[in-house]
Nucleic acid binder design. Structure first.
Length: 223
DNA sequence: AACTGGTTCAACCGCGTCTGA
DNA sequence: ATCAGACGCGGTTGAACCAGT
């Protein structure tokens, strides 16, 4: 016996939202807020929709200050960094990207960023398995275990064979010379939150620098 | 113009977690 | 402590769109 459905599927409308439905939902939420029950919202607002559908529509589309499409280089970096650190916890990753929703980040990862990452290898050696993606990300951030000591260690993005000496990388701030990341695998909070801002900024700087370098190297290759 | 295969992204589904009775 | 209802999340689906032939 399965779980009882959250609403009667035969009595609610499904599929794409009409502009009228959007207006109704937006007006209702703007007037009453989202602190009440989502389950009872459709009835109160006069919508023939499931409460979960209303919640999703508001969070992913109607909520103010939502950004759609056009992820920036910096956002790519943040997603890559956090994906390596915490895995596919899209809501957490989205919380670090103002205006982005978990659904957007997830879609962007699945449709574009994953391919972009694979394509950072020279096309003749490119592979397409998730294992290879994970191992590539592993290569990017060799020092994120719990209780790890963060030092000015060198790391390279996939596709870069040169040593850091050959590429003028930004140097680590002095505050990173001996920083310990606290926390443990049992701790449900995630490591990046525990990292000092300097460390996170440093990682981003390094990624951006190397990504720029890779893009210049592979100009002309399409992916 | 018509067809086909690939891509995108909004929306759905179902499960785990949370919360209040 | 237990249970039911609600919420939040990640995985998946499928319609719409696009590009190539």
């Amino acid at each position: 016996m399965g779980r009882a459905p959250c609403c009667d599927k035969s009595k609610v409308k499904r599929g794409p939202w009409s502009p009228e439905e959007d207006t109704t939902l937006r007006n209702y939420v703007q007037k009453h807020g989202t602190t009440g029950s989502w389950i009872s919202l459709p009835q109160k607002a006069g919508l023939k929709r499931c409460g979960k559908s209303c919640r999703l529509r508001w969070l992913n589309y109607l909520r103010p200050n939502i950004k759609h499409g056009g992820f920036t280089h910096e956002e790519d970096t943040i997603i890559l960094t956090l994906y390596h650190t915490i895995g596919s916890r899209w809501s957490v990753i989205a919380s670090h990207l103002p205006g982005r929703t978990d659904n957007d980040v997830k879609n962007y990862w699945n449709t574009k960023l994953k391919k972009k990452l694979l394509a950072t290898n020279h096309p003749s050696t490119a592979t397409t398995t998730m294992d290879s993606i994970n191992s590539k990300i592993d290569n990017m951030l060799p020092y994120f275990p719990a209780d790890a000591e963060i030092v000015d260690s060198q790391f390279l993005l996939p596709g870069l064979n040169e040593t850091p000496d050959s590429i003028p990388l930004p140097s680590a701030p002095a505050s990173l010379s001996n920083i310990h990341v606290n926390g443990s695998s049992e701790d449900d909070s995630f490591l990046v939150e525990l990292m000092p801002n300097d460390a996170f900024d440093f990682v981003q700087d390094r990624f951006n620098h190397q990504l720029n370098y890779l893009e210049s190297m592979y100009q002309g290759y399409t992916y």
